[in-house]
């Protein structure tokens, strides 16, 4: 049996309210796909359609080559971990992990071994006899993952699994999840999150969702370096989105000519130029001159807000010895290759 998930034109609606609009997406076997988007973007609905808790109004959902659209959740053979863990409070840790095995009538003599294995894998073997409420949030999280893995699913659904943890635990668990995935290379993972750091760290590919629709899909590097829409550019990482007019071998921004690649853009048309703040530096080129209107110290960097022709341009520069005074006139520069031209007005959120 091959794993992997395929959405084939999946639409979910509650009454006249469409919460997921004809989603087409394939998660390859063994791939980690992050569904990234703000709340209400339809990402959790997509996950719940795979789990079987929402029934699509149209379209099909496949797990492997199996059409599971009409199957009840308990026949789908998926592992799922949700934000609040949903550990059964009346069962000890080992019974929680064994739950799925017993429910699926796994051979009795196999169960203890597989429970131990799953707990071992998540580092929770020492806590087998505890009740969930005797565990910390991070530990409960590990038990929830162990419980999902014990049934050896081909598909693992993670719904905001880290959002109930504090920042420090979160980065630890992120590394842990990455390790687990290396140990289980055949398992496809669908990872729903609104946190770009989680998505960038963990995912092989990221599907960016907004307003019930898939906006963009690609590898993290791809989306970060070459976003296709303004929404992606602003949701995956920070971005300066500058309204520009396309010229023959560059663009005009706030009266200044910038030499950047303009592949395929019609000269004279309006477009948006995306430049990452950390790629913008202070230089002495003649072009982008502006006045510093705000300075934020962020430890290793200074975030400068520079007003250029009525637009605020963000620049993250290495920590400056002296904090520049407000109103100081500066010149900004960035490498032409670091700028990405986006068609203006498309999916501008």
């Amino acid at each position: 049996m091959t794993s992997g998930i395929r959405f084939d034109g999946v639409t979910v609606a509650y009454g006249s309210n469409t919460v997921l609009d004809s989603l087409d997406l394939t998660v390859e076997p063994g791939e980690v796909m992050a569904l990234l988007g703000p709340s209400g973007s339809g990402k959790t609905t997509a996950l719940r359609a795979v789990a079987g808790f929402v029934r699509p109004a149209s379209g099909r959902v496949f797990i492997g080559d199996r059409d599971v659209t009409a199957l009840p959740p308990y026949k789908r053979g998926i592992g799922m971990v949700v934000q609040q863990y949903a550990l059964f409070p009346h069962l000890r840790v080992d019974a929680n992990v064994a739950f799925g095995l017993k429910a699926r009538k796994a051979p009795k003599d196999e169960i203890p071994g597989r429970v131990a294995e799953a707990l071992e894998m998540t580092g929770m073997a020492a806590y087998a006899r505890r009740y969930p409420r005797e565990l910390s949030g991070g530990q409960q999280q590990r038990v929830a993952i162990a419980r999902a893995l014990a049934i050896r699913p081909h598909v693992l659904l993670l719904d905001e699994p880290l959002s109930a943890l504090d920042a420090q635990l979160r980065s630890g668990m992120l590394a842990e999840l990455a390790r687990l995935h290396r140990e289980l290379p055949d398992v496809s993972i669908l990872y729903v999150t609104h946190d770009q750091v989680e998505a960038l760290t963990l995912a092989d590919r990221i599907a960016v969702m907004d307003k019930a629709r898939l906006q963009d899909c690609g590898t993290p590097q791809d989306l970060y370096r070459r976003p296709r829409t303004e929404f992606t550019a602003s949701f995956v990482g920070n971005a300066n989105l500058l309204p520009v007019r396309v010229g023959t071998d560059g663009v005009t921004f706030a009266g200044a000519d910038l030499k950047v690649p303009v592949p395929g853009a019609a000269p004279g048309s309006a477009a948006t130029l995306c430049v990452r703040p950390h790629l913008v530096g202070l230089g002495d080129g003649p072009n982008l001159r502006g006045r510093i209107v705000e300075v934020q110290w962020r430890g290793s960097t200074h975030r400068l807000y520079v007003e250029v022709g009525g637009h605020r341009v963000k620049a993250d520069v290495r920590e400056l010895k002296e904090t520049p005074a407000l109103g100081t006139e500066v010149t900004l520069h960035f490498a032409p290759d670091d700028a990405v031209l986006l068609a203006a007005g498309v999916n501008d959120g």
Partner: peptide
């Protein structure tokens, strides 16, 4: 909370 039932169903437990 329906999340318990759903967690159980996703683990393969029939109603």
């Amino acid at each position: 909370d329906p999340m318990y039932e759903q967690a159980a169903a996703s683990l393969g437990a029939r109603p």
